[in-house]
Design a protein around this nucleic acid. Structure first.
Lengths: 189, 189
DNA sequence: GACTAGTCTTAAACTATGTTATTTTTTTAC
DNA sequence: GTAAAAAAATAACATAGTTTAAGACTAGTC
């Protein structure tokens, strides 16, 4: 296992020696997963965090009334999991499904705990990763509470053009929190 | 300067030696700030992150149409800043105002950079802080896109009873992203 | 190449939320 | 303690978003 892509992602923020790289990579598992498969099922314990080498995924919640709400999309070089369920090792609120055939790197909870101990620099890497994730979500909350649906749609398209190419309009609607019918109306008015 | 409260908050997650505590505390500045004052003004560079020793604050954005959107409240033992503006040292999208007279500990950007270098354990502390913040915001996004206003109001009240005691209904409405008139209707129906 | 299932569009009727304005209640400032 | 200011409640009307249902348009499967 070589994993140059995830190592490059990490080395954007911290630098690793050859032996550290080797150790880190030994904890990883690479999987080829097909379109429509799920790598996490709502209700299950979330045992891993995932890095997308290629392809695309969608994390969503399915509620009692049958409403599907997209929490995030992930494309190449993104990390994704149900972070709440992962860090507390409890039942997941989210499912994660494949939008297309993808190559996914898996890092398990217990492995990450060991990595933090053996290579403390990873605390820094994940500090930066979570810092960015927090900022992103906070900006999304601001979008949600202060912009109209129309504005939010166009802001989404501008911010994530790589995502827009891969997902359906129905999935974008579920990310924005509106019905596909209403999004269609907004776009075509 | 003694600062037992912020040290206790930190030592919930990492342990510090006496000399590390002393060094860390030397970077802090404690301010007593009065109700209605602002410790951060939208448009200004965000130079510090704040820890609330006592009192309460509100971070909000004021947009072109005059709409006030509350991004977060902070009460005793919470950290608050415009994280996007802070970590990138750029213009703030948010203002932070005092809800009541408060004692605020200030940690400046350049100080935090030095702390990360001198006491790498702080990478771990902030990794955990941001991890929790990310999880919180992600759950809030899910609330925003999948629940009704009524449900979100009661979920907010249940989750943050300490906040509810201190803020106006108008401020809660601006946190939920609805008008005060509508929140009043929802509550009293 | 035709069948199928899923997506997208459109529209009418309905519900949720916003706007404006007025009154009542609570808080703040002297 | 009183006057002024802000917050909260209420209501009539306007706009945003949902529901349901139907038809047009893909994309995937044999």
């Amino acid at each position: 296992m070589n994993c140059p892509q995830i190592l490059e992602n990490i080395q954007n923020h911290i630098s690793l020696s050859t032996s550290e790289k080797k150790l880190f990579v030994s904890y990883l598992k690479v999987n080829d997963v097909s379109k429509k498969e799920r790598i996490l099922q709502q209700g299950d314990i979330c045992k891993a965090i995932f890095f997308v080498e290629s392809g695309s995924l969608r994390a969503y919640n399915f509620n009692d009334e049958g409403k599907d709400s997209t929490i995030m999309f992930a494309v190449q070089d993104w990390w994704i999991t149900d972070m709440n369920a992962f860090v507390n090792q409890k039942e997941s609120l989210l499912s994660i499904e494949l939008i297309e055939d993808s190559r996914i790197v898996e890092l398990r909870f217990s492995a990450l705990e060991e990595i933090y101990q053996k290579i403390p620099k990873f605390e820094r890497f994940f500090r930066i990763l979570f810092q960015n994730a927090y900022v992103r979500e906070q900006l999304r909350v601001l979008d949600n509470i202060s912009y109209s649906t129309e504005d939010r749609y166009y802001r989404f398209v501008e911010k994530y053009p790589q995502v827009v190419q891969k997902v359906t309009q129905k999935q974008i609607a579920s990310y924005l929190g509106v019905t596909p019918e209403f999004l269609s109306k907004v776009k075509n008015k």
